[in-house]
C-alpha cells in the first residue's frame, strides 16, 4: 500500500497519508479507508502505523514525569496545580493534617511527579515527593522542545549548567527553574533556552548554545535601548 509522504515530512490537517485505513496511528484519522493528518505536524511510521507528531501539541502527561506546577487552589483534601497551557492537575491527600503540614499557598511553585492520568484528570504524587520551590528564575518553554533542551543523555542541559554555573530544574510540562550565582548567569541560561526553542531542529546546536553563553558571560548583558520603527 502506498504512502503519500516521506519520513518526517511536514503535513497539514486533511492531508492524505495512506490508502490503508488499518495503518492509522496517533495524529491521524480514517475516512473511506484512507488515512489523513489531523494536525500540522511531521508524518512518521511508528510500529508500522502512520502517525503525525503535532508541531504544537499540548503536553501529554505520563506517569513518572517530573513537572513544575503552580498551586492555584488549596482544598481540605489536597491541591489544584496549574501545569501551564490550560492544564490542571490535582494532588489528593486524604489526611487534612497532611495538607496543612505541606503549608502550600496559592501562587507557590512546586516540583512534583505525575502519579496517574485518567478520565478524571491528572494526579500528582503526594507526600514527600512534593518539593516547594522558593527562589530562582522560573521561565517556560514549549513542552515539545524539552527533550532537545535535555539532549542526548543530558548532554545539552549539563553543558548549559556547567557554562552558566546555574542549577536548573526542568519540568517536562515546560517550566524550568534556574538558580545561578547572579542574574547575568541566569539570563545567559534563559538565552540558551530561547536559542534552543528557536533552532531545536538544526545541526551543531550544542556548539552554538555554548558560544552564545560564552559571549554573554564574556561581555556582560547587552544593553537594550528603546527603538522606534516606522511601519510599512
Amino acid at each position: 500500500m502506498p504512502l503519500y509522504f516521506s519520513e518526517r515530512e511536514l503535513v497539514l490537517p486533511g492531508q492524505l497519508l495512506s490508502d490503508d485505513g488499518k495503518r492509522s496511528g496517533e495524529g491521524t484519522y480514517v475516512l473511506g479507508d484512507k488515512v489523513y493528518a489531523l494536525t500540522v505536524g511531521f508524518a512518521t511510521i511508528k510500529n508500522d502505523k502512520v502517525c503525525v507528531i503535532p508541531i504544537k501539541g499540548t503536553y501529554n502527561p505520563q506517569p513518572g514525569d517530573r513537572v513544575i506546577g503552580i498551586v492555584i487552589d488549596v482544598k481540605p483534601n489536597g491541591f489544584e496545580v496549574s501545569l501551564g497551557r490550560h492544564l490542571t492537575a490535582t494532588i489528593r491527600i486524604p489526611d487534612k493534617k497532611e495538607v496543612q503540614a505541606l503549608n502550600l499557598k496559592v501562587g507557590e511553585a512546586i516540583y512534583a511527579s505525575v502519579k496517574e492520568v485518567g478520565l478524571k484528570g491528572v494526579f500528582l504524587e503526594a507526600g514527600e515527593k512534593i518539593k516547594k520551590l522558593t527562589s530562582g528564575l522560573l521561565v517556560d518553554m514549549h513542552p515539545s522542545k524539552i527533550p532537545r533542551l535535555i539532549g542526548r543523555r543530558g548532554s545539552m542541559i549539563n553543558m548549559i549548567k556547567k557554562e552558566t554555573g546555574c542549577e536548573m530544574l526542568v519540568g517536562r510540562n515546560g517550566y524550568i527553574l534556574i538558580k545561578g550565582p547572579s542574574p547575568t548567569n541566569e539570563f545567559a541560561a534563559v538565552a540558551a533556552i530561547r536559542l534552543i526553542e528557536r533552532e531545536a531542529h538544526s545541526q551543531g546546536l550544542t556548539e552554538r548554545v555554548e558560544n552564545l553563553i560564552k559571549n554573554i558571560l564574556g561581555s556582560g548583558v547587552k544593553d537594550e535601548r528603546t527603538e522606534f520603527e516606522a511601519g510599512k
Binding site: G84, V106, E108, L133, S135, L137, L138
Partner: peptide, 16 residues
C-alpha cells in the same frame, strides 16, 4: 481572575 503568575516570579521581579 486568578493570576497564574507564580509568587516565585513576582519575588524575582522585585529582587531583580
Amino acid at each position: 481572575k486568578k493570576s497564574l503568575t507564580a509568587r516565585i516570579v513576582q519575588e524575582k521581579i522585585y529582587n531583580l
